[in-house]
Nucleic acid binder design. Structure first.
Lengths: 134, 134
DNA sequence: GTACATTTGTTCGTATGTATT
DNA sequence: TAATACATACGAACAAATGTA
C-alpha cells in the first residue's frame, strides 16, 4: 500500500496523495502539524526531495501552510466575508504575484478575486476569505 | 545588475523577478519560449536548482506553462466566458487538486471558481476562462 | 523507422543558512 | 546554548518526452 518506488507514478505524487487523503478524510485536523520532513523520510523510506516536493504540492493546493522552524500545518478553514456584485460589475480569479502575496498576507495556494466595479475601480480580495454573491 | 549570490534575497527569487519583468513588460510575448534551463544556468551563473525554482514561481503565478521535452512558454491570455450569478447564488475561488487539474485541463497556477446555485447544484469553472457577472 | 540531440522531470547526495523551541 | 525544522543552493545521474536529421 505505502509507496512503490518502482511505480510509474513519481514517489512524491504517491506521497502527496497519501497526505492529501489524511487531510481531506479528517484524520488530520486543522492546525495540526504534519510529521516533520525527517520523519516522513524515515516513515515512508523516501528521499528528502520527494518529501519536500510532496509537501509543496499540498501547499500549492492551499491545503497546508509551512512555517520555517516549526513545520507544516493543515490550513484552517475560515469564514468568508460576502462581496456583492452589482449590475455591470465583473469578477475574475487569478493567482497573486509573490509581492501581492506579501501585500495581502496570503498563504501559498490561495488565489485572489479581482472585482472590477462598473464605475471602474478594481478591488482585490483574498480568495480564502471571500465569497461572491449577487 | 544581474544576480548577486551574496544578497539576502534568494537567488531563485532574484531570477524569478528578472523573468517576471521580462514577461510583464512585454519583452517576452505570449507563446514564446523562455531560455532553456541549461541556458539560464550558464547565462546567470546559477545552479539548475535555482533556475527550476524560479520557473516554478512563474508557473504557480500562472504566468508560464512548462511542457516536458519542449520548454517553458509564456501563457497566452484567452477570452473569458461570462458566468452570471443570480440571487441566492454564491461563488468562491480556490486552487484545484492535481486530479481536478487533469479533469478540467487546467494549467498550474490557475484557480477554479466554484459556483453554488441557490437550488443547490455546484458548478466548477476554469479560473482563466471565466468571468463572473451579476 | 532509427538514432541522436535537446529539454524537462525525478531522485539522491552534500552543505550551509535561518527561524523556532 | 543546543536541538529541531524548514530553506536555499550546487552537483550529479538517469528517465521521459519531443523534435530533427
Amino acid at each position: 500500500m505505502a509507496i512503490d518506488p518502482r511505480s510509474d507514478r513519481p514517489v512524491y505524487r504517491q506521497l502527496a496523495d497519501l497526505l492529501h487523503d489524511e487531510i481531506s478524510s479528517g484524520r488530520m485536523s486543522p492546525d495540526s502539524l504534519l510529521p516533520s520532513e525527517a520523519q516522513l523520510v524515515t516513515e515512508y523510506r523516501v528521499g528528502r526531495e520527494a518529501v519536500r516536493q510532496a509537501v509543496a504540492v499540498l501547499r500549492a493546493e492551499g491545503l497546508v501552510r509551512t512555517e520555517r522552524g516549526i513545520g507544516t500545518r493543515v490550513r484552517r478553514v475560515v469564514d468568508r466575508a460576502p462581496v456583492r456584485l452589482r449590475r455591470g460589475d465583473t469578477a475574475v480569479a487569478r493567482m497573486p504575484s509573490i509581492h501581492e502575496r506579501r501585500e495581502y498576507d496570503l498563504d501559498e495556494g490561495v488565489p485572489v478575486i479581482e472585482v472590477r466595479r462598473a464605475a471602474g475601480e478594481v478591488e482585490i480580495h483574498a480568495g480564502d476569505r471571500t465569497e461572491i454573491t449577487s
